[in-house]
């Protein structure tokens, strides 16, 4: 808790996950939840309120934006779809690099067995 301020370039785990979920496709909130649960397992997704709090703030900061309802594959006109912005991609990329560097360090220090991710 010592850090005074965290820049958007250093997103929280939830923000990062949302960015990852949106990296390959526009999704609505429920789609994002499904994507997170598919990657990290049942029960890993935040409650609905927390998700939309994050979405609202990410939108304000320009990490994500509104997307049109997809024409193909069962788009639902009542729903809102979210799309990752260029800035969002940059933040996600930077965070990925930072995490990758951390993982590299962990591997150097033999914390990671060769078979692990």
């Amino acid at each position: 808790m010592g850090t005074k301020h965290k820049s958007p370039e250093h997103p929280t785990p939830l923000t990062f996950r949302i960015l990852l979920a949106l990296a390959d496709s526009d999704r609505h909130g429920y789609g994002i939840i499904k994507e997170i649960e598919e990657r990290d397992g049942q029960g890993s997704a935040p409650n609905t309120g927390a998700l939309y709090l994050a979405l609202q703030r990410m939108e304000t900061e320009g990490l994500i934006q509104d997307a049109p309802t997809p024409e193909h594959g069962g788009g639902d006109a009542r729903r809102r779809y979210y799309r990752i912005t260029e800035k969002g991609k940059r933040v996600a990329g930077a965070e990925s690099a930072r995490l990758a560097a951390l993982v590299a360090t962990a591997r150097e220090k033999d914390l990671l067995a060769p078979g692990d991710a």
Binding site: P8, T12, L14, N47, T48, G49, Q56
Partner: peptide
């Protein structure tokens, strides 16, 4: 869900300009 939404509303109301997540 109810607790999460209470927090959502409180945070939006009390800290409107806060950075994301």
């Amino acid at each position: 869900e109810a607790v999460g939404t209470v927090f959502l509303v409180l945070r939006l109301r009390l800290e409107p300009g806060k950075p994301s997540g």
